[in-house]
Computed example of a mutant assay.
Amino acid sequence: MPDNALEIDSVSKRYGRVVALDAVTFDVRPGELFGFVGSNGAGKTTTMRIALGVLAADAGTVRFAGQPITHQTRTHIGYMPEERGLYPKMKVLDQLVYLAELHGLTANEAHKSAEGWIARLGLGERRTDEVQKLSLGNQQRVQLAAALVHDPAVLVLDEPFSGLDPLAVDVMSDVLREKAATGVPVVFSSHQLDLVERLCDRVGIIRSGQMVAVGSVAELTAGAAARLVVSAPQAPPGWAAGLPGARVVSEGQGGTELELDPGTDDQTVLAAALATGPVAEFSRRKPSLTELFRNAVSEGKSS
């Protein structure tokens, strides 16, 4: 395992008879953006809290740079909790300076870093406002600054994009990319799967406390059935029904999408489409992370 990786190794957690985590294992490599996705209650927040030492695991180990997480290690982690943890009556600048000093920065270092992140995140006009007087989006930016102000060696963010407008999402995305580019491992959870797919190097899917998939989206979809998108403007509804080795996934004005069984010749589909008239589009499409996630969750419900 490379230096400065965050490793979650066979971590388990129970609450009475409820198994919250069952031997969860994955790693976040230096310079990597890792998306951690799952339904509500799947175990994302519990995993993150154990990684931070906020919760104790019943079994398993969390390591950073090859060593078990200690109190000293935790001072080098930037954490953004899902339940935001800011002091509502404290001014933005004062709060960031205070948190930086808590993590070991000198007063001068803390002020310099706080002012830098306030400027970077577009909070300059709000630097002397109380947090409770900010919009939710700006509170979110302050919370991100709080996770970054001490120049952490690893970032753990729980739903950092929740409630952000598109401009703030872009700012947040750019900041996470920049941190990863410096070699920092970055792991974040999100329900916005299109954003995870666009932003992350690898993805982990957790279901009912168990990791069911870890890898790049390309790796995770490599074994998925091929998809075809066919636009045949003159084709009657249901033209593709009954084609051997093909199943209609959707049909509408944008065309017909089919899922092919392994070994099915897509030229037979093209021939059937051409038999109805001209074909405006005939293309293969990879499954999205959203589709992959739905399949993983539905498999769990049906088993």
Rank of each mutant, 00 (worst) to 15 (best):
D3F: 00
L6M: 13
E7R: 10
V11Q: 02
S12R: 01
R17K: 15
R17W: 03
G31K: 10
G35M: 05
S39G: 09
K44S: 08
R49S: 13
I50H: 03
V54M: 06
A59I: 05
F64L: 00
A65E: 03
P68S: 13
I69T: 15
H71R: 15
I77R: 00
Y79Q: 01
E83V: 07
K91H: 12
V92D: 06
D94T: 08
L96H: 11
Y98T: 13
Y98N: 10
E101D: 07
E101N: 09
E101F: 09
G104C: 08
T106W: 05
A107I: 04
A107P: 10
N108E: 15
N108R: 15
E109Q: 15
E115V: 12
L123T: 08
R127G: 02
D129P: 04
K133M: 09
L136P: 04
G137S: 15
L148T: 05
A153D: 10
D158Q: 11
A168T: 14
R177D: 10
T182R: 15
P185C: 11
S189E: 05
D194W: 00
D194P: 03
L195I: 06
E197T: 06
R198Y: 13
L199K: 11
C200D: 07
V214C: 13
A226F: 05
S231H: 14
L243G: 08
G245M: 02
A246C: 12
V249D: 08
G254Q: 05
T264W: 04
T264M: 12
P278T: 08
E281L: 14
L289A: 03
T290A: 14
T290G: 10
L292P: 01
A296G: 01
V297S: 08
S303P: 04
